[in-house]
């Protein structure tokens, strides 16, 4: 019966390995719930994006090349994060530090571009208080930006741990979770780019 294949067997499995596997699985489940939260934000944006209350529309506010730049930067950071993980599995501490430093800088650049877009909107009077469209735009994009910020904070703490303690199994597991998180954020951004910017400019 194929039934027993899905079960951890206490006799053969290493206790720590089984626990790590559960942690990674549990984190995947958490990422799914985070995805669902973003879905709520997308639903709100979809419903409210035309409610400009007489204010400027998406066509007037969004700069597509700028958004493309943000997208490519984040995509590259997702790639370099993956390379960092490969180095971690090959136990190359310095490569890990290097690749994650690049990822960090790219992430920081992404945030910087996003914040400059926000400040431009705010300075023109297009704040989140102006109408429902801007409320939903700022909340959706800034929630993603907040996740990126948390990711950067997490990344710097992990790099500190790698620097001082080396690539222990515990820290490698943390890096696995971090990289899952970072890839997930790029995936969410694909849809923000498409639904907010591409569809906004169409």
């Amino acid at each position: 019966m194929k039934a027993t294949k899905d079960l951890p067997n206490e006799k053969t499995d290493n206790h720590k390995a089984a626990a790590d596997e559960r942690t990674i699985f549990g984190f995947w489940v958490y990422l799914m719930t985070d995805l669902l939260m973003f879905a709520g934000l997308f639903a709100a944006y979809a419903v409210l994006h035309n409610n400009t209350f007489g204010g400027p529309t998406t066509h007037e506010l969004f700069n597509l090349p700028f958004a493309l730049a943000e997208t490519l930067i984040l995509l590259t950071s997702s790639f370099t994060c993956g390379l960092g993980m490969l180095a971690a599995h090959k136990n190359k501490k310095n490569h890990v530090l290097a690749w994650f430093a690049v990822t960090f800088l790219l992430g920081l650049a992404f945030l910087g571009l996003e914040l400059s877009e926000f400040s431009k909107l705010v300075s023109e009077g297009n704040t989140w208080q102006r109408n429902a469209f801007l409320s939903s735009f700022f909340t959706l994009v800034a929630t993603h930006g907040l996740h990126i910020t948390v990711g950067l904070l997490w990344m710097s703490i992990c790099m500190g741990a790698v620097w001082f303690r080396g690539l222990t199994p515990g820290i490698t597991r943390k890096l696995t979770l971090l990289s899952m998180f970072w890839h997930f954020l790029d995936i969410v951004w694909i849809f923000i780019f498409t639904v907010v910017y591409l569809m906004g400019v169409m």
Binding site: L64, L68, T71, L72, L75, T76, S78, F79, G82, I190, F193, T194, L198
Partner: peptide
């Protein structure tokens, strides 16, 4: 994955 993603992003753009 990286190259394909770039291609798809640029295509949509």
């Amino acid at each position: 994955g990286f190259l394909l993603s770039i291609v798809l992003t640029l295509a949509a753009y």
